[in-house]
Design a protein around this nucleic acid. Structure first.
Length: 427
RNA sequence: GGAGAGAUGGCCGAGCGGUCGAAGGCGCAGCACUGGAAAUGCUGUUUAGGGGUGACUCUAACGAGGGUUCGAAUCCCUCUCUCUCCGCCA
């Protein structure tokens, strides 16, 4: 959520900034509602004041045994009038809030202009894509011996789920351990375990609700819970409705969870394989920082995610998302894209974002600024470190040999009992 | 699932329907005292929103939401969470 003051005092400037990302702010409507809100609030508070004053007078009169009937007559009707304006104000405020919850974040000045993916800006590349002396096979092909079983998943559940067997499943698990160990032991993150089902307050806090309900899986029945689309939701909401001491900042959490996304199937994109699934594992980095440090933190967090790819020796590039490709809550985002030889393309494997105070305002997540003594909004960031399923795909495709065996990356060997190769045959 | 108890400020803990944003204590901050400190004393110490250039002022909040009332922390209803006991369970 944007600072409501921006909509009151700098609406034109705010509208211009939002226009950069292709969002049209309904200035006329907001200004009209805002004006009415102001009048109504002043009026309501006047009436409340009147009521309070009269009630105190009645209290005093009663205590001294005076006849209170004339006083009672005076306030007759006030209650009705007050109730009416209060209700009206409430409705109006709810309307304004609904509008505010639907407005995306303002892009940071360093976020490049653009309308879609094609306008994203490459920042740097790492690693050389390997030259294959044979035509490389994609992961579906490599897993066809039984390591990856999409048919079984479709039978058990439906499309866009995966069953992973044998050594491939083991490597999938090993990747999670490897990532968690790296971030906790070398990058200063604290591991956390969280619920995979969350309430609507949490989803509103990080920005999935109310606008993106359709992207989520929701429980039917008596619990009004959603499955998490990312660990970002439970982990960031750890600080919801809190005022943190200055000394606890920055908070750095790393968390492995499954992620559930219903939007995945709707694009007709990446229908083959396990690139785009309704369920996947992810190791997520979340930071809660002081506002002045958030852009430094974004660079550091991005490097932390990159380190995973470097240790696994997977070629990748970093792109800065343009304003048109930016997520709803983000002010600036770096995507990490890993090289997939069979697609001859870099494909997204991590997304690292600074949300500034956008999520913090929705969550009422604050810290006590020791110089002002006042509670102020924190800045929140997160990034994948990394998406595990896609990492497995990248390893399969980049590390395959002509027999369809997968060489185990050096960094992963300790997690696989020193194994050199795995054969994705499901055994 | 059954039975019961509870939820008040950073923490503990009072609170008869009226002057209660809330006693008292602890903690914290400032000042005094001191060579310095401890102890002691005094003062201050929630959050959000509105109005005002500002001093300031108004409104709201005692788990959440509704209700009764001129007036609710206090009475009534619903819900959530916590604790105890029983049952069940990985």
């Amino acid at each position: 959520m944007l600072d409501p003051k921006l909509l009151r005092t700098e609406i034109e400037k705010t509208a211009d900034q939002l226009a950069r990302r292709g969002y049209t702010l309904n200035r006329a409507l907001i200004s009209t509602l805002e004006e009415r809100r102001k009048d109504l609030q002043i009026h309501t508070q006047q009436l409340q004041n009147e009521r309070n004053t009269h009630s105190k007078t009645i209290g005093r009169a009663k205590a001294t045994g005076q006849n209170i009937q004339p006083l009672m007559d005076e306030v007759a009707g006030l209650g009705e009038q007050l109730k009416q304006t209060e209700t009206e104000l409430e409705t109006l405020q709810a309307q304004l809030l609904a509008i505010q919850l639907d407005i995306p974040n303002i892009p940071h000045t360093t976020t490049p202009n653009g309308t879609n993916e094609a306008d994203n800006q490459e920042i740097r590349r790492w690693g050389e894509p390997r030259q294959f002396p044979f035509p490389p096979r994609d992961h579906v092909d490599l897993g066809a011996e039984g390591g990856l079983d999409f048919e079984a998943a479709a039978k058990i559940t439906g499309s866009r789920f995966t069953v992973i067997h044998g050594q491939l499943a083991r490597m999938h698990r090993a990747l999670i351990q490897f990532m968690l160990d790296l971030h906790t032991q070398e990058h200063g993150y604290r591991e956390v375990y969280v619920p995979y089902l969350v309430n609507t307050d949490s989803l509103q806090g990080t920005g999935q609700l109310p606008k993106f309900e359709a992207d989520l899986f929701k429980l039917s029945g008596e619990f009004n819970y959603h499955l998490i689309p990312t660990a970002e939701v439970p982990v960031t909401n750890l600080v919801r409705d809190r005022i943190l001491d200055a000394e606890c900042l920055p908070l750095r959490h790393v968390c492995h969870t499954p992620c559930f996304r219903s939007e995945a199937g709707s694009y007709g994109k990446d229908v083959r394989g396990m690139i785009r699934q309704h369920q996947f594992e992810k190791v997520e980095l979340v930071q809660i920082v002081r506002p002045e440090e958030s852009y430094k933190a974004l660079e550091a967090l991005t490097r932390h995610a990159e380190t995973v790819l470097q240790r696994l020796e997977l070629p990748y590039r970093v792109v800065a998302l343009c304003t048109g490709d930016l997520g709803f809550a983000a002010a600036k985002t770096y995507d990490l894209e890993v090289w997939l030889p069979t697609q001859k393309k870099y494909r997204e494997i991590s997304s690292c974002s600074n949300f500034e105070d956008f999520q913090a305002r929705r969550m009422r997540a604050r810290w006590r600024n020791s110089t002002t003594g006042k509670p102020e909004l924190v800045h929140t960031l997160n990034g994948s470190g990394l998406a595990v399923g896609r990492t497995l795909v990248a390893i399969m495709e980049n590390y395959q040999d002509e027999h369809g065996h997968i060489q185990v990356p050096e960094a992963l060997k300790p997690y696989l009992g020193g194994l050199e190769f795995i054969v994705p045959d499901g055994r």
